[in-house]
């Protein structure tokens, strides 16, 4: 992952989850949040998806969350792939959030620090329980 310039506020992220409930990134202030933009037809997205669940379980719910933002797909199509997840699935049906976040391609992932700043960005697939990524999240939790 690439470290981002300090104190860059994350764009607004306010989308419906799988139950139609609005989820706002701002409600996670005080936690470190991993925001992953993905689609089920994207091979590297599919490959990294299980690691989102694994990294989620490495941390307490009170300190870390994963938000998986699906881009442009029907919820039924998404559920057939994702099933029940340990983290919220959000739906960016018109890709407006993806555009606001400056995403160039899928998958793209951001790590947001406890103050709501974008700390890291990754273009392309990753394994999120990789020791380097886990270490970076732990460092953010200490700051």
């Amino acid at each position: 992952m690439t470290a981002m310039p300090a104190n860059r506020q994350a764009p607004t992220l306010r989308l419906n989850d799988e139950d139609g409930k609005v989820v706002d990134l701002a409600q996670y202030r005080g936690k470190v949040v991993l925001v992953n933009f993905w689609a089920s037809w994207c091979p590297p997205c599919r490959k990294e998806f299980p690691s989102l669940g694994r990294v989620r379980k490495l941390f307490k719910p009170s300190e870390f969350e994963v938000l998986a933002v699906n881009v442009g797909e029907e919820p039924d199509f998404v559920f057939s792939f994702a099933g029940v997840t340990a983290f919220p699935l959000l739906f960016d049906r018109d890709s407006n959030a993806m555009t606001a976040w400056g995403v160039q391609g899928l998958p793209t992932t951001f790590v947001i620090d406890r103050k709501g700043h974008v700390a890291y960005r990754a273009n392309g697939g990753r394994e999120f329980d990789d020791p380097d990524i886990v270490s970076a999240i732990r460092q953010l939790l200490k700051s």
Binding site: T2, A39, W41, P43, G72, E73, Q104, G105, R121, N123
Partner: peptide, 20 residues
Amino acid sequence: AFRWAQFQSENAFEPGDWIM
């Protein structure tokens, strides 16, 4: 779906990035 399945007209790759 079409738009994001394409290799984008302009890309920026940081170290470690992989785009398809």
